[in-house]
Design a protein around this nucleic acid. Structure first.
Length: 591
RNA sequence: GGCUCUAUAGUUCAAGGGAUAGAAUAGAAGUUUCCUAAACUUUUGAUCCAGGUUCGAGUCCUGGUGGAGCUACCA
């Protein structure tokens, strides 16, 4: 429609005013004014001198005469509001209702793919609320990009090596008495996490002792025997010590089993896992090459650096003086590896905003090394999840555990559902599945509706609601529509033409909202923002509920209107379902 | 100190440089003979401050102020 109008407007300006307009911008007409689509005349004042109202009137008259779909117009100040004919809306809606994948673009198999990295946990502790935001965002963005017509690979890099896992291993050796997930009944990640905490406790005790013996705090922190032992263990691991490597493998397997449970509950998945134990040596040869090319330089002590002061950043180390890799080295190597492994065009990193600087530097380095895909790397940066009690700190035990939180949400959904008592005739199993759908729907929607780069204040006690702009509110609308469809004992699949029905105002509004869906998906994909999908869906539901309360659907006496309104309901439900799928949220048939 | 992000109703979130800044929640008042009241309708209430650019600024620019993060030969 916009394209048709654009051509007509350009032609109109040429014929009426004899000027060439390069671009025309449209916006949806505000609800308080009559019309469907609006052209802002002010924007043309630099081409055509004169009174905006006069220009708008002339253009409106021209469009009404020359564009079949424009049935009327009005001009308010500098705004030309165009009224689009019912016939256009009805014929467009008929196309949408028969299109099962409306808004979703199939990927072209020949196109290069997008890789989305998210989650990327450490193997020394369970997933927490921060990981939930990361996982939900990464998964949803991957699904949205897929729906926008690109092939997508979901990946995570598992940080399975380093001093942190040695700490858990050491504590387990010392205090564990051979405890396993089986003997303790604990999830593997929880078990290993407990030993990480145990290490920290023992470490702190040793520090206190050393300080009592007269050391400074700094000395004590560096000299605590348990820490030195953990560092020894890391060296042994790097040397391939059989006993250490075997323990490392065992404990990591426990953690992976635990993570997989959490991922499954959360509804996220991955196409490929990268393990840091395999990738931590990558990147060194690239640094060597870069050194030859003069991208990097070497200091007297042998460490390698890049000077980014010309770009307004600092100098950054890329290789230690002992020749070992740092985080940046690995990331350089891993990025290159990924572009070798897959036919990629774009790489998205879902990582918290505390690493904004790191990724800015990383992308800049890749660009300087001459990789032209560097400009297609994107850091999907998101804000922290804050608790009323302050920042989450794993060492202080002030974290909200991912599994616990999901359980809590399901419990809340159960309580509310039971109070409402609407699920008679459902088996216990079906009910439990539904509580999970609703509870997780609330959690996911709550987190995804917020602009990723903003921080979220999360109050576990009360912040996740079931009324208002929430997941369950939208799920409820879907379930209600399913109820209508179950009761519709007539054939609502037949297609009605424009001369058979006249549109009610609420139906026009609803169709306009429905038509936006494909554009919203594209926008959400290019902005990497699930929040756009969430807020669109909420607007759609608001519009539908208003329609639902205003005009009778099954109770409508006019048979054709009844059919049309049922079709509208069905289409709204289909879009809710598609949109929520992109957010990783399920929709219930009943609730 | 330097760099980055952020600031909108009491609270949680919206607003592609466009019209009278929208929702939700909390507060006040109402609506169930049709389809699920987890709904709907009405109502009170906000752009951190000072400049600038523009026909037009919550949005862009400059300078403040508040909040957060980064500024490791940790990851």
């Amino acid at each position: 429609m916009q394209n048709t109008l654009k051509v007509a407007v350009i032609k109109g300006f040429k014929e009426i005013f004899d000027v060439d307009i390069d671009n025309v911008e449209f916006q949806a007409t505000k609800k308080d004014f009559e019309g469907d689509i609006t052209i802002v005349i002010f924007a043309f004042l630099r081409f055509v001198k004169g009174n905006p109202v006069e220009i708008g009137t002339k253009l409106g008259t021209y469009l009404k005469e020359n564009v079949a779909e424009i049935s009327d117009f009005n001009v308010v100040k500098g705004f030309l509001n165009l009224v689009i004919s019912d016939a256009y809306f009805i014929s467009d809606f008929n196309k949408i209702k028969d299109n099962a994948t409306f808004g979703i673009v199939e990927p072209n198999p020949d196109d290069k793919a997008v890789m989305v990295e998210y989650s990327s946990p450490n193997t020394n502790k369970p997933l927490h609320l921060g990981h939930i935001r990361n996982n939900l965002l990464g998964y949803s963005v991957a699904e949205i990009i897929k729906a926008s017509g690109k092939k997508v690979y979901k990946t995570q890099i598992i940080n399975d090596r380093g001093i942190h896992i040695c700490k858990s291993m050491l504590a387990w050796q010392r205090f564990g008495n051979g405890e396993t997930p089986e003997t303790s009944g604990l999830k593997g990640d929880k078990l290993v996490g407990n030993y990480y905490v145990a290490f920290d406790k023992a470490y702190k005790e040793e520090i206190t002792q050393l300080i009592a013996q007269g050391k400074t705090e700094e000395e004590a922190k560096k000299q605590a025997p348990i820490l030195l032992e953990a560092q020894q263990m890391l060296l042994k691991w790097e040397a391939g010590d059989e006993e250490i490597v075997s323990l490392w493998k065992t404990m990591n397997e426990w953690v992976y089993a635990g993570f997989n449970e959490t991922y499954k509950e959360l509804g996220v998945d991955f196409d490929k896992n990268y393990y840091e134990s395999n990738t931590y040596l990558l990147g060194k040869d690239v640094v060597a090459e870069g050194l030859k090319k003069g991208v990097f330089y070497k200091k007297e002590d042998g460490s390698v650096w890049i000077d980014l002061t010309a770009e307004g950043l600092d100098e950054k180390i890329v290789l230690r003086s002992d020749g070992t890799a740092v985080y940046m080295t690995q990331d350089i190597g891993t990025a290159i590896e990924r572009f070798k492994d897959y036919d990629l065009n774009e790489l998205v990193y879902t990582v918290g905003n505390e690493q904004d600087y790191h990724f800015k530097v990383l992308f800049l380095i890749l660009e300087k090394l001459g990789f032209d895909w560097a400009k297609n790397c994107y850091h999907l940066s998101y804000g922290m999840v804050d608790l009323p009690s302050g920042k989450m700190k794993s060492r202080e035990g002030t974290v909200v555990d991912a599994d616990d939180l999901m359980l809590e949400m399901t419990d809340t959904a159960r309580t509310i559902s039971q109070d409402l008592g609407k699920l008679e005739g459902y088996s216990t199993e079906e009910k439990e599945g539904l509580y999970k759908t609703i509870g997780l729907g609330a959690l996911k929607y709550y987190i995804l509706k917020v602009d990723p780069k903003k921080r979220i204040m999360f109050d576990p006690e009360e912040s996740v609601d079931f009324a208002g702009n929430t997941g369950p509110f939208i799920q409820y609308t879907y379930a209600r529509i399913q109820s209508i469809l179950r009761k519709a004992d007539f054939d609502f699949s037949i297609t009605l033409s424009a001369n058979e029905i006249a549109l009610h105002q609420k139906e026009r509004e609803l169709i306009k909202q429905i038509q936006l869906f494909p554009e919203v998906i594209q926008n959400a994909a290019s902005n990497h923002s699930p929040a756009l999908i969430a807020n669109f869906t909420y607007d759609l539901v608001k519009e539908y509920n208003s329609f639902y309360q205003t005009v009778p659907i099954l109770g409508c006496e006019n048979e054709k209107e009844k059919i049309f309104r049922t079709q509208l309901s069905n289409t709204v439900a289909e879009i809710i379902k598609s949109a929520f799928k992109l957010l990783g949220i399920e929709v219930p048939e009943r609730m």
